[in-house]
């Protein structure tokens, strides 16, 4: 399976993917500080609030996931290069599994790295410009570390929600991207229309949807995956 995942990486326009990754990391790294300084100073009241802000910002990688769905699935269908894979003595289910694992691993690792970089950048900038009240406690560090792992996993799973319907079935790039934007802004949208949702519950439902999308993608590939 790792070999198949590596081959997925080799098929991609690597420079483009790496550039995209760097742009995401660069923007998200400074976004919390920018947000506290320019948009809402309330987020700077202490480190535990900043952590919440960083966690919600990292959902931006759902969009990166959509970009990978586009390149790994939709483009391969459009260019018919997926027919090359289907012609190899490997079952479609296994091929799709390798693609999904590749996307989810990429999103998971990027989100993880982004958490580290954003945390470091926010802390260091705060040390120089003093934009957050107080200093992080040991409990903040522990919470940040655990949220980093859990939310990277959640982001990876949420990023796969558009996979089955828009990626494999409809093979449509723009709806995939719109769906990703909607998912990463879902919590903001709900607060805009004055609906208070439990973030943990929202994450659980979105993760479930991501899981269902992955399940259907693998299960239905023989039926909807023809070229």
């Amino acid at each position: 399976m790792f070999k198949l995942m590596e081959l997925e990486w080799r098929k991609l326009k690597q420079k483009m993917v790496i550039s995209e990754m760097i742009i995401y990391l660069g923007i998200l790294m400074f976004l919390p500080v920018f947000f506290i300084k320019m948009v809402m100073a309330d987020f700077g009241q202490n480190y535990s609030v900043v952590i919440q802000l960083i966690v919600s910002i990292q959902l931006g990688f759902v969009l990166f996931g959509a970009s990978l769905i586009n390149q790994v699935f939709i483009e391969e269908y459009k260019n018919k290069t997926i027919s090359l894979s289907f012609g190899y003595p490997i079952s479609r289910k296994k091929l799709v599994m390798a693609k999904i694992l590749f996307i989810s691993l990429a999103v998971f690792l990027c989100t993880l790295v982004s958490f580290v970089l954003t945390g470091l950048a926010t802390y260091l900038i705060d040390q120089v410009f003093d934009i957050i009240n107080g200093q992080p406690t040991a409990a903040d560090f522990a919470a940040y570390f655990s949220k980093m792992i859990v939310h990277s996993f959640i982001t990876a799973l949420i990023s796969l929600i558009p996979l089955f319907f828009f990626g494999i079935w409809k093979r449509a790039t723009i709806p995939t991207v719109i769906c990703a934007i909607f998912l990463m802004q879902f919590q903001n949208f709900s607060s805009l229309i004055n609906i208070t949702l439990d973030p943990a519950l929202v994450n659980a439902v979105l993760c479930l949807l991501g899981f269902v999308s992955v399940y259907l993608s693998i299960k239905m590939i023989d039926k909807v995956g023809d070229i």
Partner: peptide, 12 residues
């Protein structure tokens, strides 16, 4: 779909 081993011996 579960046994495509024959395709190893095919070029196309």
């Amino acid at each position: 779909e579960t046994n495509k081993s024959g395709l190893k011996r095919v070029g196309s």
